[in-house]
């Protein structure tokens, strides 16, 4: 971006009539909204960090870990399922696929933004559609992951004097109830964001198809919703690290 126009009117830079940020109102407000959303997600992840490290960690051998209410579970042992491969121990594979889907849909979103810069309606349509599909695929995976955790293992675990399978907000066969609480809350909050992102993407896709942005003369709406979509991908990068890796 050219910056020479700014230096000539330095005195009146904030006096109105100029754009100190060189970004449109809509984009700027989207950035500010994303900042506030960052604070919300950070609060959740900071809470997770605090609670996770105030519980004893598992110290025994990694490959023969057993679940207990006494210590925080190893994520490798909890999230080890894959659809159609029941009972096979495949740690982190499914969440790897989910991460790939979300990164991929982020790429198709940038490609849609790039096509919008070229005013290429067909390309915007194509890439928006892929982005929507990616979002829906991710949500479907999320639903499977939740079901996997809620239903639990066949053996279950002794909780409050009887065998309990899976996890809910008060009981959890994998470890302390706080583990399941935080998992449902944080991935649920993120999933809600993905869902609203998919809805926004569908609206943008519809507007593109009926030619709204060709009439307004620019595809900035795609950029604004793109910012939101990348933010959702960004949050997942953090959720992935804190929940599945650490």
């Amino acid at each position: 971006m050219a910056s020479h126009s700014v230096s000539t009117s330095n005195v009146n830079l904030w006096g109105g009539g100029v754009e100190p940020m060189k970004a449109s109102y809509g984009k700027l407000m989207m950035w500010f909204f994303l900042m506030s959303d960052t604070f919300t997600f950070s609060a959740l992840l900071i809470t997770y960090g605090l609670i996770r490290f105030s519980h004893p960690a598992y110290t025994g051998p990694m490959d023969h870990a057993v679940f207990s209410q006494e210590y925080w579970p190893l994520p490798d042992m909890v999230f080890n399922g894959l659809p159609f491969l029941h009972g096979v121990h495949l740690p982190l594979v499914f969440v790897g696929i989910m991460t790939f889907i979300l990164i991929m849909s982020s790429v198709t979103m940038v490609l849609a933004v790039e096509a919008g810069h070229r005013m290429d309606r067909n390309d915007v349509q194509k890439w928006m559609l892929w982005t929507i599909l990616g979002g829906i695929a991710f949500l479907a995976c999320q639903a499977w992951e939740w079901t996997h955790l809620i239903m639990g293992s066949e053996t279950g675990q002794m909780v409050d004097g009887k065998i309990f399978h899976g996890a809910n907000l008060v009981r959890n066969e994998y470890g302390p109830p706080a583990f399941a609480d935080l998992f449902f809350f944080i991935t649920g909050f993120h999933g809600t964001h993905v869902l609203s992102g998919v809805v926004l993407n569908i609206i943008i896709f519809y507007n593109t198809v009926v030619g709204v942005y060709d009439r307004t003369g620019h595809y900035e709406m795609v950029e604004k919703v793109g910012l939101y979509w990348h933010f959702v991908d960004l949050v997942w990068v953090f959720v992935f690290t804190f929940f599945y890796l650490i």
Partner: peptide, 9 residues
């Protein structure tokens, strides 16, 4: 707060 969690433990 990760360190804080450790010291609560």
């Amino acid at each position: 707060l990760i360190f804080e969690g450790g010291s609560i433990l």
